[in-house]
Design a protein around this nucleic acid. Structure first.
Lengths: 333, 333
DNA sequence: GACACGCTTGGAACCCGTTCCAAAAAAGGC
DNA sequence: GCCTTTTTTGGAACGGGTTCCAAGCGTGTC
């Protein structure tokens, strides 16, 4: 038996093909009752639209390119989840390009072909280069930034300053010394994220407002060995200077290392040493880590919506969507 | 400037659209001169056909599913190379499914969706299960086996018996003891390959014909540690029983381990110990290994052709294409 | 030279969606 | 209740290929 077509659905529902198309694409101008009958016909016939026909009739590829640094981290997995959810709803395909280093990004941006094929572009965590601007002007390809910001481009990002501030306000209420650990990212300058600078400035301003000062700050890279060393250094200093103390670890990774080290030294978490993390990694709940949860999926979902609105003809000025982390208080602080 | 269409090409070449389509699809019924002018027009306009339009007009997906156990080995990489070359020529896309274990294969075979999308199926190294037969009858999906054989299905495979025989005939001419090492594959029964049984039976029959007997046989698994151990065992025995000797290693992997071990013991390769491999791995030339080269790419290419002919309407009985390895004599034997 | 047959070729019909325009229906205004 | 405006709807045109039929051409035969 032949696959049903949009014609079959239209006939079955007693409406025109245009109406069926409108329902499929969520165009608003369809009355509730009509929409229902179309949806019923679709279900009855087990109709699935032919994506190729759609692409040729629509004159687009219905494909979005997503550029990101890596896809092996929790953060980007969640981000993609949000992006893909939104694009799937709009029946767009997603092509993912993990562009670990500068040369790959430039190769990508330089290639006409890919620009030609995707209807839109999502760039995650990228610093906008001159090259990118030129290309955007040249190709007119609708673009959205996610986890990044620039003037004149739609963007969706996390307010890390606010997140840092929340951590700072919460930390300020505890007596004892305050410490903080920041992360030095190893990404190329191209991919610079201001994430940790932002968290720091929010944190510091909160302490300032509360009239508190920080005892010491540390920096670690992202690998687990470095995190372990840093944790040891912090605790050495803290034990020497006197407990209790409160440590803001600007990434859960670091917070985890601190929890390990605290336990190792027979100290009491949340008492001798309070730890505040950032990220709310999957394991944070079971380890009782007080941390900042980021609505990463929402940020991705919203980025996709911004792009889709452009694809549907929105011509207005660039929009920026800001998302705030949420402090999740568990046992560690 | 708009992308040129088949209409533009037809106009530019002064022919009808049908003719252009015929040239694009390599239909024979186009005169040389006409074909040339069409090709020139295509080049002039930098025309590239729109694959979506093709899929909708042609009523097919122009996509082939390739099922194979893994794609990390030399063998499957070369196989895919041959398959993809042929499919690209015919402008088909290839979707690759590495189905490492039984559950994934069954999940794949059970799913209607994928069956629905691909125009044809290439199965590499799979034993045909009952499930597969039922599915084939149900979906009528054109299928070809590669590196495997079954009645009533098109297939393209290596004649490992012949390969073993060549090794045997060559080995038989040398004086001294004869040894052989076989491989025990760890693949699920579903993916059974008779490769090593076949090589063995060919090898043995050749010795038989030549009136020679084998001194001892060994079996190893495919990992390098096991290969090293096996090599040591073989050489212990050989040194005890007396050199020179000749060893047929039914996979280059094993032959490589033997070469290492021979050198380690200060023996002369090709003199004290002769080694014959099988596979002609990329490193075999520089290490001077006498081995059997398999035309794996050709086997894949031919498999694709068999499938394409079905897709183009061939209705005849199942065909089987047999490929013979070629003995490459280098220094080791 | 006329006729038949097979090989090439042109082009209309078709594949299955989206879009746009005009028409129909509904809502609003008096 | 009638007219205007707005919302909703039907369906033709279109997008870029493939396929099939009929027509054109060339060659071979007598």
């Amino acid at each position: 038996m032949r696959k049903p077509t949009i014609q079959d659905v239209a006939r079955h529902a007693g409406v025109g093909v245009g109406t069926v198309s409108r329902v499929l694409n969520n165009h608003v101008a369809v009355k509730g009752a009509t929409r229902e009958s179309v949806l019923k016909a679709i279900a009855d016939l087990e109709y699935t639209p032919n994506p190729h026909a759609r692409r040729i009739a629509g004159g687009r590829s219905y494909t979005i390119s997503v550029l990101l640094p890596v896809l092996t981290t929790e953060f980007y997995v969640r981000l993609l989840d949000g992006l893909e959810t939104a694009f799937q709803e709009a029946r767009y395909d997603v092509a993912i390009f993990p562009l670990l280093d500068r040369s790959r990004l430039e190769r990508y941006l330089g290639s006409h072909t890919l620009a030609y094929q995707a209807d839109g572009l999502v760039m995650a965590t990228y610093n906008l280069t001159q090259m990118f601007h030129e290309r955007r002007l040249r190709t007119q390809q609708p673009t959205v930034l996610v986890d990044a910001f620039a003037d004149n481009v739609d963007s969706s990002f996390m307010d890390n300053v606010a997140g840092g501030r929340m951590a700072g306000e919460y930390a300020a209420q505890f007596s004892g010394d305050l410490y903080a650990v920041w992360v030095e990212t190893e990404l190329d300058q191209l991919f610079t994220t201001r994430v940790f600078e932002d968290r720091r400035s929010g944190f510091m301003s909160a302490l300032d407002t509360a009239g508190r000062t920080i005892r010491a700050e540390y920096t670690s890279s992202f690998d687990s060995l470095a995190a372990r060393n840093t944790a040891a250094t912090v605790l050495n200093q803290a034990q020497e200077a006197g407990l209790p103390c409160t440590v803001f670890a600007s990434a859960d990774m670091l917070a985890g290392a601190l929890l390990d080290e605290v336990r190792l030294r027979g100290l009491k978490i949340g008492q001798d040493v309070r730890v505040i993390g950032f990220d709310d990694q999957p394991w944070a709940a079971e380890r009782g880590l007080t941390t900042l949860h980021q609505p990463v999926e929402s940020m991705g979902y919203e980025a996709a919506q911004l792009l889709l609105s452009r694809l549907n003809g929105y011509k207005g000025p660039a929009r920026a969507r800001r998302f705030e982390p949420r402090l999740i208080i568990r046992g560690s602080a």
